[in-house]
Design a binder for these strands. Structure first.
Length: 382
DNA sequence: ATCTGTGTTGAC
DNA sequence: TCAACACAGATG
């Protein structure tokens, strides 16, 4: 499914002074082309000429995009894609054509650095905000950037990154850019300037939570307490429409942002996380009996966090849960204030959580987090 | 049932 | 490298 196989981590992107690209330098063919229906005959064009009466009939031909890296979708949406090493890398689908083109631009700048040909004005080292974004972009693996684009979380993560930077600067913690500062009290060490969090609740996931239904049932009492749907003010996500629920952003231990649709299903009279949930299950390789934990920052941003631990994994927040004796579906209430982040010892690898298909284990995730911390410190030192 | 994004192809 | 098209398989 993933088409990002050929991606590697290294990038030669010394991004500097890209020429302004406001559709004039760069537009010899890729920008602001408003193709006539017959302007481009792709390999599979389906324009049919009715030779009998000379009428040109068009058989549901999709409109070409005026943007580079953007392709039409049958339902009127737009896909973005970029090529690398003879392979297409899919960047996701978007409602708006220019949204797709901006996704392409971001990918192009990450993949091709200063050589990137973009639809819009590229990031410039002369603009402070752009420099921050370039640093953000280039400190992440290509696959990670692609993932953010596909999940439409790029801008949220970038904003989060900016907030962290500001916070570190204002707290005088500028020696290193430490991604771990977002995760209070993890393993001690380099954790100044952190924000505290409320533990909201945990749930031992059921087979149907990790099965083909692609949804997580949020127990009613927790849903109504922490994620009230009638008043979206309390939710950090953006309200799309009351009937369709809301989109909620949760951050995991790797500072990866997960966006889930949260709504109420009348049919089963339950609150559910739907869209996006199956990705989480897949990536974390969640199994029935594992525990997902929800937290919220006590700070003004009210950031939501999500984490998980294996069924027999380490205890969560010293609450005594996670001992492996839970009944499926049982919800574990935890102390109100988070003291440790799930109490995980990131140095020990628990063999039971290394799963058979080679997916990243819980410990590996935390080690990744530690690595990324070091990576950021290195970057900041440059 | 709907939609995404992959397989494939030909143009450039 | 790139976009067009068809459609399998993922998603809701």
């Amino acid at each position: 499914m993933e088409s990002i196989s050929s991606m590697d981590n290294e990038s030669s992107s010394t991004i500097d002074s890209l020429k302004p690209n406001n559709n004039s330098n760069n537009n010899n063919s890729n920008n602001i082309i408003h193709p006539s229906p017959l302007a481009r005959m792709g390999s599979g064009t389906s324009v049919i000429i009715d030779s009998e009466n000379g009428i040109e009939a068009e058989s549901k031909k999709l409109p070409s995009s005026k943007y580079k890296g953007v392709v039409p979708q049958p339902n009127g949406r737009w896909g973005a894609q970029i090529y690398e090493k003879h392979q297409r890398v899919w960047l996701g689908t978007f409602n708006e054509e220019d949204e797709a083109s901006r996704a392409y631009d971001i990918a192009a700048q990450r993949f091709r650095g200063r050589d990137a040909v973009t639809n819009f004005k590229p990031l410039s080292l002369d603009v402070e905000e752009d420099v921050i974004e370039l640093q953000f972009l280039n400190s992440r693996a290509k696959a990670e950037v692609v993932d953010m684009l596909r999940k439409h979380t790029y801008h949220d993560e970038l904003q989060q990154n900016r907030r962290n930077l500001k916070h570190q600067i204002s707290s005088g913690f500028v020696g290193s850019v430490n991604r771990q500062t977002n995760f209070p009290n993890v393993g001690g060490g380099c954790l100044k300037g952190m924000t505290s969090r409320d533990q909201l609740f945990e749930k031992v996931v059921t087979p149907s939570d990790v099965g083909k239904l692609n949804r997580l049932v949020i127990p009613k009492q927790h849903a109504e307490k922490h994620f009230p749907l009638n008043n979206s003010n309390d939710l950090s996500g953006k309200c799309s429409s009351p009937s369709k629920g809301v989109l909620l952003n949760f951050e995991d231990v790797n500072e990866k942002v997960w966006r889930f649709r949260y709504s109420y299903w009348n049919s089963s009279q339950s609150y559910v996380l739907t869209k996006g949930w199956s990705r989480f299950v897949k990536e974390k390789n969640l199994k029935a009996g594992d525990v997902v934990c929800f937290q919220r920052s006590t700070g003004p941003d009210r950031q939501l966090y999500i984490d998980w631990k294996p069924r027999n994994g380490v205890p969560c927040s010293g609450s005594g849960s996670g001992s492996g004796e839970e009944v499926l579906g049982q919800v574990v209430e935890s102390p109100a204030q988070m003291i440790r982040l799930f109490g995980v010892n990131i140095c020990e690898v628990n063999p039971s959580s290394i799963n058979e298909n080679g997916k990243r284990s819980r410990e590996m995730e935390l080690l990744t987090m530690e690595t990324s911390c070091k990576k950021q410190m290195f970057i900041a030192a440059l």
